[in-house]
Amino acid sequence: MQERLSFYKKRESAVHRLNPLSKLTLALGIVFVSFLSPYYWTPHLLILFAVIPLSLLGKVLREYINAMLRLILPTAGFLFIMQALFQPLEGVELFRFGFLHPTQESVLFAFANATRIVVMVSSFTIFLLTTHPNELMTDLTRRGLPGQFAYVIISTLQIIPQMQAKAQTIIAAQRSRGLDTESTFFKRAGSLIPLVGPLVFGSLVEVEERAIAIEARGFTSTRVKTSLNSIPDTNKDKLIRWSLIVIIIVTLASRIWLS
């Protein structure tokens, strides 16, 4: 069972010190450029010259490689193999094995596609590793995101571990009174209701009390609320954001005119 439900690693680094919105723009910018660029090698170069340097700069290279091995590479590898074998692209045939006949084109296509997915998931992972969700939400609320959204995100992150613990307790309790969770398909499907029921009704009971509690703390008040933590937003952050927006627009333009 996970203790804390977030990828965040607390470090002292240039990436950690950036404003959360700048980091979000950076992550989205990398994704957009890798998907929109008309050049074949863009995603590969992005990994070498954007993703890996960023993880070094943010001192999260080890965690990033861990996530890479656990989440990213299995997905990307599966994608690469499936697409290389099954994309019906015409071209130079590499080999023939039964009904499989991958072509040079399909392998190249699969390679670019899998790399793009790697870039996308990597840039989100580095963003999550270096940004605390509370910081991001505080910053976005200060910029005008309604407080309710911040409440939903933050309280979900708190509820999920509790809920998972509750689910484990219910599974253990139902097993101890003899519920079959491991044999035939129909038995397993049948045991869904006694597991889901207590979990859902148990957690819905708390909803009403919590609604009254946060209403008493001025949840729906429209007054501007003050925040305990202030999040720095320097000129450097603004420069980074604007230059990323320019880069995205240039890539989009090159996509439209060059292809």
């Binding site: 939903v152 809920m163 509750k166 499907a189 045991s191 869904l192 889901v196 859902v200 609604a211």
Partner: peptide, 22 residues
């Protein structure tokens, strides 16, 4: 607004129970 976080947690918890039950 209070129901939404609970519902999201329900989504994720049931998703994981289903994985447990294969």
């Amino acid at each position: 607004w209070v129901l939404i976080p609970v519902a999201i947690a329900i989504n994720i918890a049931i998703g994981q129970i289903v994985v447990t039950l294969k």
